[in-house]
């Protein structure tokens, strides 16, 4: 084996080693980034679960509120506690009729 061929073999081996090293470093880097991404994703999932839990709690509150302010319940409460009943037509008044039903009182004359 000549000195030249031995030199070429050595250079080739070095290149392969360097390429291998670069590949390994890149792979390790990618693994690191990917691991970080998965950690972030897991945190996002955890946050998402918290949001879901909060939304579920809000839904429960909304359902309770809807139950509490049901017209039938409010009607029953206002009738039993306050003696209210449904409004009748004769109890209503349009804006244009206010003046005729409740005329303005005469202004008292100013003292001389």
């Amino acid at each position: 084996m000549s000195v030249r061929s031995r030199h070429n073999q050595s250079v080739g081996g070095s290149i392969i080693f360097v390429l291998f090293l670069i590949g390994a470093v890149l792979t390790l880097g990618l693994y690191y980034v990917k691991t970080n991404a998965q950690t972030a994703k897991a945190e996002a999932a955890q946050l998402q679960r918290l949001v879901s839990a909060e939304l579920a709690a809000i839904k429960v509150l909304k359902a309770e509120l809807a139950h509490l302010e049901s017209p039938a319940r409010l009607s029953e409460l206002s009738a039993s506690r306050l003696g209210f009943s449904s409004i009748e037509v004769k109890q209503t008044l349009t804006l244009k009729d206010i003046e005729s039903v409740f005329p303005l009182k005469d202004q008292p004359e100013a003292n001389p």
Partner: peptide, 26 residues
């Protein structure tokens, strides 16, 4: 080392990230 690197590459490049978020199931 090659096996380790190939496995790392496989995990890094081909992993679909399953079981990291089961929110969609609910």
């Amino acid at each position: 080392l090659m096996v380790a690197v190939i496995r790392l590459a496989e995990v890094s490049l081909l992993s679909s990230g399953k079981n990291t978020n089961n929110y969609s199931q609910s």
